[in-house]
Nucleic acid binder design. Structure first.
Lengths: 334, 334
DNA sequence: AGCTCTCATCGAAGCGCTTCAACGAGGATG
DNA sequence: CATCCTCGTTGAAGCGCTTCGATGAGAGCT
């Protein structure tokens, strides 16, 4: 294991000079810099992370708490996590993966030990038990998702309220008057993860303004369960001509069921989805959809977090504006 | 920030005593231990990770390299990652999330800096460029997946060869003579990620022994692409009565297509899938399947890795035996 | 020539912890 | 009663790095 001191000896300078070459915190003459850099290369030197962390009290690590849940659409989580990791690297940070399992204790452990300089929380609940801890700490943090009370917190999320509104608007514009919303699993609503409720909120209030009737049904996993919910919806409101689907698992069963019933998409029935782009593109009918910008959320979360670490950041909620992409699943009402 | 020294002062003992209470590496009298533990609680002490890493040259961190790819079934990756993280915690380790983006350089960086004590690599290719580095290092590592040359490496994986064999056997037992294999995306085969090829190998050689005809087709993403492949298969070999599907995305399109053609599953056609249990259970027909034991793989990888860190481990390949679960998608040949 | 000022470099003091050799106090032993 | 252990505890020496105050060498000025 090569140390700073060895590099210094090899380059014929002092240890502090090598340190300054590495950090750039003091001016170094070109000749010295080149000499040191060459020694580093020749010896294959890598600064020791522990020593660095101890001396500078910065670990250059960001903690990322991801949920363990299986009732959420996993690829989105994964995409966010990967975006966080790669963006963090461009700022010189590594990412520590924490699962929700330890709960609030994990927050305390990581902050207390100085293992990480900052943290990102995913899957935040409206009244998350980790929030008090987060507020009482001076460790920077960013939430992906929106709790009920965002005071003193930095949050990044898709603007789900606007997303809901956008979906109704699109259907309304196409002349649909009676629409059904196929939501996430009931457990998601019970848990009070805000996004599902916010979508519904935005959707309902815009629908009211536009004079549109809305029927909402949560929808659990499993092909049969989904089919049952859909059948019930079509039973209760046979006049339903537009669907908003915020549940990746329900997409194919819905399309299959409609096909089987002889209702053509988009000629007879229109479908607007809220889902990752990949799902929308690969479905059996290319879906008109508002995509969930997983990468963008991960990236923004890191950017904000780094800003806060550097003392530049401010506490604020930043909502990403939804974009509706027109594909083949929504058309004029019959 | 509370330090060891402060705890020692508060408890009226020396710093080293506190350290030994924490590590248990020397006998401590019950009275002293209780006193120290109380001081720790009262002061809210958390050992500083950096200082610990520096002094002990152990970071208690495991690095996990996950692929960035999108052509693999993401939930499996995520499940493995989560299993790794939770299992690691039970051994006192945290997990550092590395994406494949940096490539082999990441291995060098992490090893060199002492950031992590050991690493787990996922999505290993047959001739992976990270392997030479891994072999030249004395840092413990475990691969999830199997490269071409496993000498000097510890690997954990599902026994895909046996999995392939198991699938044919089941279909053969039910009287099927002509079967088709719907594989992963062509890119997966091109990349020489061993598992797909190994499955095919095991499947083919067992098929030969049993006198079964096999037609294999890779199958890319997207509903239409999948439908096209399936249509072609049924064109080329109309007598095909059994399918082995190793591609989660193709499951539903296959079932839908068969339905549309009036071929009933499992009365007319049988399907055996190689996929995560959740997919098998939630499909429109409950699938007879060999499940991919993601959790088990993550868990075993960590157990082996910890053993190696502690000097107990040995280099070896451990293949998890496949288990075929009979559900509703495979029946006697017509 | 003497002075100041700037720029590049250095030395030394920690950061908070682990670990090792050493030590004192009893208890057991001859 | 002297001697040897053993057990529990301590002090001090680092681990490899950052950072701050200090220093020396030139350059620029009067």
């Amino acid at each position: 294991m090569v140390t700073l001191a060895e590099v210094a000896r090899h380059a014929g300078v002092s240890a502090s000079t090598v340190s300054y070459v590495l950090s750039g915190k003091r001016p170094i003459s070109v000749a010295t810099r080149l000499q040191v850099e060459q020694s580093i290369r020749e010896l294959g030197y890598h600064p020791n992370a522990g020593a660095r962390a101890l001396a500078s009290s910065r670990s250059n690590i960001i903690a990322l708490m991801v949920p363990l849940r299986t009732d959420m659409y996993v690829p989105v989580m994964m995409e966010i996590a990967v975006a966080v990791a790669t963006t963090a690297r461009t700022h010189g940070y590594d990412v520590l993966l924490l699962t929700g399992e330890e709960g609030p204790e994990a927050v305390r452990r990581v902050t207390g030990s100085g293992l990480a300089d900052a943290m990102i929380l995913m899957d935040v609940e409206l009244d998350d038990e980790r929030l008090p801890l987060l507020r009482s700490t001076d460790q920077p943090s960013v939430l992906i998702g929106l709790p009920a009370d965002t005071s003193g917190l930095t949050c990044v999320d898709l603007d789900f309220r606007a997303t809901g509104a956008l979906c109704v608007e699109h259907l309304a514009m196409l002349g649909h008057r009676d629409i059904a919303v196929i939501g996430e699993a009931p457990t998601v609503y019970e848990r009070h993860t805000g996004f599902a409720e916010r979508t519904l909120d935005g959707l309902r209030s815009r629908a009211r303004e536009l004079g549109i009737r809305v029927l909402h049904r949560p929808c659990g996993g499993g092909y049969d369960a989904i089919t049952a919910v859909l059948t019930r919806i079509l039973d209760e409101r046979p006049g339903t001509s537009g669907f908003v689907v915020q549940n990746e698992q329900a997409v194919e069963p819905l399309l299959a069921l409609l096909r089987r019933q002889g209702r053509a998409v988009p000629e007879d029935v229109s479908v607007v989805a809220i889902c990752p782009e990949q799902v929308a593109v690969q479905a059996s009918v290319r879906l008109t959809s508002v995509s969930i910008p997983a990468q963008e959320m991960g990236r923004q979360a890191v950017e904000r977090l780094v800003a806060k670490i550097d003392g530049r950041g401010t506490d604020e909620v930043s909502l990403i504006a939804p974009e509706l992409t027109v594909r083949a699943s929504a058309g004029a009402a019959p």
